[in-house]
């Protein structure tokens, strides 16, 4: 893991609020991530995980609060920040009527990359889809879509990778391949990751930071080393159930 204890913060989230009309989706979120951190945010459905990811990836804008990424403010320089961020969601963001290769070329051009073709080839190899390069994405299985989706997210060599419920709908084999890809990514570069999940075990294994989001509130946050899986599970259920009773 590329974590250096003294590295400077790469993502700073300050007092982030998001309201959809009167509905409060996120309430006063504060988070700081260092380079190389792998943060997993747990929470039940509708807790605001996806909203948070969508705000960091500049798809939607916050109601108030600020996010700084590599010393750039999200509200002022969203285009610059999009260069730093890759997003893998449960939706693959791929066009079914284009081939895997064409999809990558399209996104690569949108990112204004030089040598797009080489980059696309390189990434297809990395996610093990070189043999399907010229096949229409429509014919891909869920697991292949998700792998191609990673290739798409890595095209512009982002320093931050956002993973929004990436395991949704993957079968065990696909999950294993996906795990391997993420593990190799963690090793090779100082990527910073934010993942959302409701799979406690999976998230616990990957991360060095853990957080729990319930009803838009960040109710718990810790270093992974400071807590045992059992303990964390207990805390999670307390927080989530407490919400259900209320």
């Amino acid at each position: 893991m590329g974590k250096k204890p003294s590295s400077p913060p790469i993502i700073i989230i300050r007092n982030l609020n998001k309201e959809f009309g009167k509905k409060k989706a996120l309430i006063k979120i504060n988070l700081t991530l260092k380079e190389g951190d792998f943060l997993t945010i747990f929470g039940p459905n509708g807790a605001g995980k996806t909203t948070l990811i969508r705000i960091i990836s500049t798809i939607i804008s916050p109601t108030s609060g600020e996010i700084e990424i590599n010393n750039k403010k999200l509200s002022q320089d969203p285009l610059e920040i999009r260069q730093q961020i890759g997003l893998v969601s449960h939706n693959p963001f791929l066009y079914g009527d284009l081939t895997a290769y064409e999809n990558l070329l399209f996104y690569g051009e949108m990112f204004n990359l030089k040598r797009v073709k080489e980059r696309a080839d390189q990434l297809l190899k990395k996610v093990g889809l070189s043999h399907r390069k010229f096949d229409l994405v429509r014919t891909f299985s869920r697991g292949m879509l998700q792998r191609l989706s990673i290739a798409r997210a890595l095209l512009h060599n982002p320093s931050i990778l956002l993973l929004d419920e990436p395991y949704t709908g993957l079968d065990p084999l696909a999950t294993q391949i996906f795990d391997e890809i993420i593990n190799s990514l963690k090793k090779e570069r100082c990527h910073t990751f934010i993942m959302t999940s409701h799979d406690l075990e999976k998230g616990f294994l990957f991360s060095n930071r853990l957080a729990i989001l319930v009803d838009g509130n960040l109710v718990f946050e810790t270093d992974q080393k400071k807590i045992s899986p059992e303990n964390f599970k207990k805390i999670y259920w307390e927080k989530v159930k407490g919400d259900e009773i209320f």
Binding site: T58, R82, P92, F93, Y95, G96, Y107, M110
Partner: peptide, 18 residues
């Protein structure tokens, strides 16, 4: 339709374009 059905609209929204 193509942008919507596979979530590609969001894919476009994270590319550095207006």
């Amino acid at each position: 339709i193509h942008e919507k059905d596979t979530g590609c609209l969001e894919g476009l929204m994270i590319t550095p374009t207006d």
